[in-house]
Simulated assay, not measured.
Amino acid sequence: MDSYGKTFREIRKQKNLTLQYIAKDIMSVSMISKFERDESDVTLSRIIPLLNRMNVTLEEFLYTHNEFKKSEFREKLSLVIKAYHQSNVTIIRKIIEEEEEKFTKTEITDFRMNSLMFEAILSDLTGEPLAQESIDLVVNSLWSLEVWGEYEVTIYGNMIKVLNIESVILLSKEIFKKSKRYARLMSHRADIYGIIFNTIIVCLEKKKIEEATIFLSEVKNSNIPEKFIYERLLFKYLEGLLEITKGNIKNGYDLTDEVIRIFTFTESNSNVTIYTRYLNEFIQKRNSLRPE
């Protein structure tokens, strides 16, 4: 579907709205009619008020226009993640090659960043290290930006495991500031929490107790919305891991066991498996003894 006007008309018709109603105090009926017939364009400053009149967000409009598909970047990321869980190295390598080829042809940096992110995911699967030059490219690129949107947050979130601990701490300390502009977008905020939680886990694994404590405090001070039940539970789980790391074994287990119990009660079986296994691995690495 190439015509934005046709998409606009489709949504308007589905909502049983007349051109007269949509146009009132925004622009002429004839101009909207021409737009719907693909005879003229409408500027962004005009189309947003028109969409607001229909109670449709720009994101919903573009999603409809793209025939209810994710963006190409999101589609490829979904394929890579699926291949990762299936241990399908071939598919991931193919997608990396496609992004590299696009970068070679266009010299558009995003394609290079995409391929490096996919290489990082592949590295976690195969154990093959990512070249330091590639890691430095991503870190320097992210650090140079004043504002991080969904794209930059996604790149960083999937690169954390291949970065050294110093880079992770440095970038994660900046993330609330760099993404402040989009803080009210709930999906974006959830992504930020995911990155900070991963940062805390990395800090705990590297025995960076002070840094892990600081990041947990920042999350607590951010007032996790009540609707973010999963994030609130994971926050408590990480508090438990921190307590265990500090030597407060009983307090730590009380917190982590309560979170796993809630996952069990709500039949979140995959979460029960993931967090029980990780807790056991976490303890084994520290040679800690579980109290009776």
Rank of each mutant, 00 (worst) to 15 (best):
173 K>D: 13
150 E>Y: 12
172 S>P: 01
224 I>W: 04
217 S>M: 13
192 I>S: 02
160 I>L: 14
164 N>Q: 11
147 V>R: 08
211 E>D: 14
209 I>V: 15
227 K>M: 14
209 I>D: 13
220 K>S: 04
140 N>E: 10
172 S>C: 09
177 K>I: 11
204 L>M: 12
230 Y>D: 10
235 F>R: 06
191 D>C: 13
194 G>P: 01
186 M>D: 11
217 S>C: 09
144 S>A: 13
142 L>V: 10
226 E>C: 05
155 I>D: 02
232 R>N: 15
161 K>T: 14
150 E>F: 12
167 S>Q: 08
166 E>R: 08
169 I>S: 06
232 R>T: 13
233 L>H: 09
208 K>S: 08
196 I>W: 03
230 Y>N: 07
138 V>F: 02
176 F>K: 07
140 N>W: 05
204 L>I: 08
185 L>S: 12
212 A>S: 15
194 G>L: 02
211 E>F: 06
220 K>C: 01
152 E>Q: 07
194 G>R: 09
210 E>K: 14
193 Y>A: 09
175 I>H: 05
167 S>I: 02
150 E>M: 10
214 I>W: 09
218 E>G: 02
218 E>S: 12
164 N>D: 15
145 L>T: 09
196 I>L: 12
212 A>N: 10
145 L>R: 15
151 Y>A: 05
185 L>P: 00
142 L>Y: 09
149 G>R: 12
175 I>D: 00
241 L>A: 02
159 M>F: 06
222 S>F: 03
140 N>Y: 05
148 W>Y: 14
172 S>R: 08
135 I>E: 01
179 S>M: 11
225 P>L: 07
157 G>M: 08
224 I>M: 11
201 I>W: 05
191 D>Y: 12
156 Y>K: 01
158 N>P: 04
201 I>Y: 12
207 K>S: 11
132 Q>P: 02
152 E>Y: 04
241 L>W: 00
143 W>G: 07
221 N>V: 07
229 I>G: 00
131 A>C: 11
215 F>V: 07
237 Y>N: 05
165 I>L: 05
175 I>F: 08
221 N>Q: 12
196 I>H: 06
220 K>E: 13
199 T>Q: 03
225 P>Y: 03
218 E>H: 13
228 F>H: 11
186 M>R: 14
227 K>Y: 03
146 E>P: 00
151 Y>D: 08
213 T>L: 03
136 D>Q: 04
215 F>K: 12
144 S>K: 14
220 K>G: 01
220 K>P: 00
158 N>T: 10
217 S>G: 07
196 I>S: 01
219 V>Y: 03
162 V>Y: 02
188 H>D: 03
138 V>A: 03
178 K>M: 11
224 I>G: 09
212 A>H: 09
177 K>P: 00
